[in-house]
Design a protein around this nucleic acid. Structure first.
Lengths: 199, 199
DNA sequence: TCTCCTTTGAGAGTTCACTCTCATTTGAGA
DNA sequence: TCTCAAATGAGAGTGAACTCTCAAAGGAGA
């Protein structure tokens, strides 16, 4: 019966205050990251800018990395699960389209700002990589279902690797050029991958 | 006229001692990494095991990461530069073959032990990633030459991304399964990439 | 308004990578 | 054997992420 706190900011004043504190920390953290870089920004500076104590900062984000690391990719996994069967690259391409289509332009833009750091700062790439094996296994399993193959079929691995690599490089380029239409570019790149790269 | 220190260990006793110290540090470091993991091994423990002072450890390796990070990939770049022109994936595949062919089985095996950490431990992936953009730009430039395209042609980026992704996943699998024939598996995977992943 | 429980702040403490200084040792070359 | 420069060790010091404890503040519900 209780409402979804994520969307409504919860009922009580307590919940709302917590949400505001969390947002303040995130907002100030990213502002500082942009101004002076990730490594050069200390957790104390973030806490001070967000007007909370250092201890409180760590209550909200157990590690500095968590500022940039949490909650990525779920849309893609959901979209993939909902896809009809097909050839591996094709299925993944459709999943990417569906995942982006499920987000508003604002959500994509807001996500992009965060992704710039997640993709650009090595420490954060590392933090995200720490969850990548699990994600890859999950995606491989889904992909195996959709294609009627084994999860450890090398062809699944290779399709996944190729898509993963292609998307990573586009993402990277996107991080450096916010004017780019990321979703469209990803789709074009995957189309090329579908039709053969040696053409 | 001076000899190549890398191969001959240099002439003087001083040089030889330095080389031995360096090797001792590397050897003990990797032993400890294997026993208790990268993060759980402190630089002091490495120094103690290698019988040097902590200060000396840092004289040999300015950062802990440098133990695992230095000197990767040059064979690939050289091999690529020497390849004749062709389609992008094909050229890269041949370059990988040539790069591995230029190494002895011992060199590959020794390199593999180090790679296991470089690929498996997120912090180290991050450290290596720090040099990846430069490497990718270099490879993209060479690839553009070989294919007669522009270095910023999206097709170059996509071929590179796909190969990079495929090789990464194989490498990863190889790290977890030393019995695997990495070079052969990479070649097979790239062959699949050449002929189209949706087959 | 009163009581309870959660959240917060203050601040001391820990760990570890990395730095600096200075005195001592040890090859190199004469 | 003597002198010099390079390498080493000892050890104190720094910075920053993260932890712990305890007391004060402030919503929630009666």
């Amino acid at each position: 019966m209780r409402q979804n706190e994520r969307m409504t900011n919860g009922g009580g004043l307590r919940e709302r205050k917590k949400a505001r504190t969390r947002e303040a920390i995130l907002r100030e953290a990213f502002r500082l990251f942009r101004e002076r870089g990730y490594a050069a920004t200390t957790t104390e500076q973030i806490a001070e800018a967000a007007e909370v104590s250092p201890a409180t900062f760590f209550r909200y984000f157990p590690t500095k990395e968590d500022l940039v690391t949490l909650d990525r990719f779920p849309p893609l996994v959901e979209a993939l699960a909902a896809e009809p069967p097909g050839a591996p690259v094709t299925v993944l391409r459709r999943a990417f389209r569906a995942a982006f289509a499920s987000l508003t332009a604002e959500q994509i833009a807001a996500g992009h700002a965060r992704e710039v750091f997640a993709v650009t700062v090595p420490e954060l790439v590392a933090a995200n990589l720490r969850r990548t094996p699990g994600l890859l296994r999950e995606v491989a399993g889904l992909l195996a279902d959709k294609t009627g193959r084994d999860a450890d079929d090398p062809r699944i691995r290779d399709a996944l690797g190729a898509v993963f690599g292609v998307v990573t490089l586009v993402w990277w380029q996107w991080a450096g050029d916010p004017a780019m239409d990321g979703p469209a570019e990803i789709d074009k790149a995957l189309a090329r991958l579908e039709s053969g790269l040696n053409e």
